[in-house]
Amino acid sequence: MTAVEMTLAPAPSIDLPTQPRSRARHLRSLLLGLVLPVGLGAAWELAVHLGWSDGRLVPPPSVIFATLWELARTGELWTHTQATVLRVAAGFALGVVAGTLVGAIAGYSSLSRRVLDPTLQALRSIPSIAWVPLFILWFGIFEASKVALIAVGVFFPVYLGVMGAILSVDRKIVEVGRAFRLSGPALVRRILLPAVLPSYIVSLRSGLGLGWMFVVAAELLGASEGLGYLLMDGQQLGKPAQIVAAIVAFAIIGKTTDWLIEVATAPLLRWQDAYGQQAGEA
C-alpha cells in the first residue's frame, strides 16, 4: 500500500452517506415525470369544465375516475382484474419455465443450439396473433388457449435472453472457475448463474411486458371476463370512459408487476455498476 493510494483513496464507499441525497433526486425525477400526464389531464378537465368540449369521446379524468370507482364499488373491477392477472400469471409462469429451460440448453450446448435456434427464430418471426385460431382449435375457446398465447409471448424474450446471456458470459471469468477446479455444477452455480442474472431479469421484465400485451389480444378475441373484455364491452356499448378506465387499470397493474420484479431482484443486482442511477441523475 502506498502513501499516495492511501491518501487519494476515497473514504470507504459504503452507500450510506449518499443515500438521502439520491433519494431526494429520485423523488425529484419522479415528480418531473408526472408533470406531463398530470398537466395534460388537468388541461383536459378544465377544457371540458369550461364547455370547450363535451368530453364524450375523450372523457376527462374526473369521469374516468368516477367510472373506475363505480367498477370497483360493484366488484366488477376486481373480478375482471383477477381473471386477467390469473391468465397472465399462468402464461408467464409457463413461458418463463419453458424459455429458461430451452434457452439454457441452447446456450450451454452448441449442438442443441444449432438444432433448436433456427426453428425457434423462424417461429418467433410469426406474428403471435396468428396463433390464435390454431390455439382455439387445439385448446378450445376458454382459458387454455389464452394462457397458451400469453406463454408464447413470454417464451421468446426469455429464451433469447437466457441463451444470449449464457453465450456472452465472459470466458475469462469462467476460466477463473476452472483454475480453482470447480466441478460442472459448481461452475454453473457460482459463475454462470450470477453472471447471467442481470440479463435474465431484463428478459423476465420484457417477457412480462409481452404477457400483458398478449392478454389483451386474447381477451379482445373473446372472453366473458377480464380487463380486455371490459375494453371490448366499452366499445360495443359506446362507453369510452369504461375503455379508458380499463386502459388505466392495465397500465397500473402492468407497471406494478414490472416494479415488483424490479424490487424483488434489486438486492441480487446491487453489485452492478449503478449506471442507471447515474444516468437518471444526470
Binding site: 475469462k172 471469468i173 476460466e175 477463473v176 483454475a179 459463475i191 450470477p194 453472471a195 442474472l197 453489485w271 452492478q272
Partner: peptide
C-alpha cells in the same frame, strides 16, 4: 495458482 493480466474478480 494463477494470476492473469486482468484481475478477473467476480463482480458479484
Amino acid at each position: 495458482g494463477i494470476i492473469f493480466q486482468e484481475p478477473r474478480l467476480l463482480p458479484w
